[in-house]
Simulated assay, not measured.
Amino acid sequence: MPIERLSDLTDAAAVPRLVLKVGSSLLVGKDRAVREAWLEILAAEIAAARGRGQDVVVVSSGAIALGAAKLGLAGGGRGSLADAQAAAAVGQIALASLWADKLGASDLTAAQLLVTIEDLEDRRRYLNAAATFGTLLGKGVVPVVNENDSVATEEIRFGDNDRLAARVAQAAGASAVVLLSDVDGLYDRDPKAEGAELLPRVDGVTDEIHAMASRASGSGMGSGGMTSKLQAAEIAERAGIALAIVNGTHDAPLARALGGDGIGTLFLPKRSDTARKAWLGGRQRMHGTLVVDAGCAAALLRGGSLLAAGIAAVEGAFGRGDPVGVRDANGRPLAQGLVEYSSEEIARIRGRRSDEIEALLGYAPRTAVIHRDQLVLL
Rank of each mutant, 00 (worst) to 15 (best):
A44M: 04
A89Y: 10
A87V: 01
A88K: 07
G75Y: 03
R52K: 11
G51R: 14
Q54D: 13
A82V: 02
G62A: 14
A82E: 03
L73C: 09
E45W: 11
G91A: 08
G75C: 07
G72V: 04
L73Q: 12
G91R: 03
E45L: 14
L73R: 12
S80I: 04
G77L: 08
A49E: 08
L42P: 04
Q85Y: 04
D55L: 11
A74T: 07
G53D: 07
A68L: 14
G62R: 10
K70G: 10
L66P: 11
R52T: 10
S80M: 11
I46L: 10
G62F: 06
A48L: 06
A82L: 07
G51D: 10
G53I: 08
S61T: 14
V59G: 10
E45F: 12
R52L: 02
G62W: 01
V58D: 10
A47V: 02
A74K: 08
G77V: 03
I46T: 03
A47Y: 06
A63D: 02
I64V: 15
A84R: 08
D83H: 11
L81I: 00
A84W: 01
A43N: 13
R78D: 00
D83S: 09
L81T: 05
A89P: 12
Q85H: 09
G76W: 08
S61I: 01
G75F: 09
A89F: 07
L81P: 07
A65D: 09
V56G: 07
V56M: 05
A74N: 04
G91H: 09
R52V: 02
Q85V: 02
V59R: 12
A44V: 01
Q85C: 01
S61D: 06
V90S: 13
K70P: 03
S60H: 12
I64M: 07
G75K: 15
L81N: 06
A89C: 13
Q85S: 00
G67S: 10
A63Y: 04
A84Y: 10
A49M: 14
Q85N: 10
V90G: 09
G72A: 05
A74S: 13
V59W: 10
R78F: 01
D55C: 07
R78G: 01
A49F: 14
D55K: 03
G51C: 13
G62E: 09
A43I: 15
D55W: 03
A88Q: 03
R50F: 10
Q54S: 11
A47D: 12
A69T: 06
G67L: 01
A84L: 01
K70R: 15
G53M: 09
A69F: 07
A43Y: 12
R52C: 00
A86W: 01
G76A: 08
A89W: 04
A74L: 03
A88M: 01
Q54K: 12
A65H: 12
A82H: 06
R52M: 00
L66I: 14
A43L: 13
S61Y: 00
L73W: 02
V90I: 15
L42M: 08
V56C: 15
G67C: 13
I64K: 10
A89E: 08
A88R: 14
A49S: 09
G77Y: 15
G67H: 08
V58Q: 09
V58A: 12
A84P: 00
V57R: 13
R52G: 03
G72D: 02
D55V: 03
A63M: 03
I64Y: 12
A84F: 08
A47N: 09
D55T: 11
A74R: 09
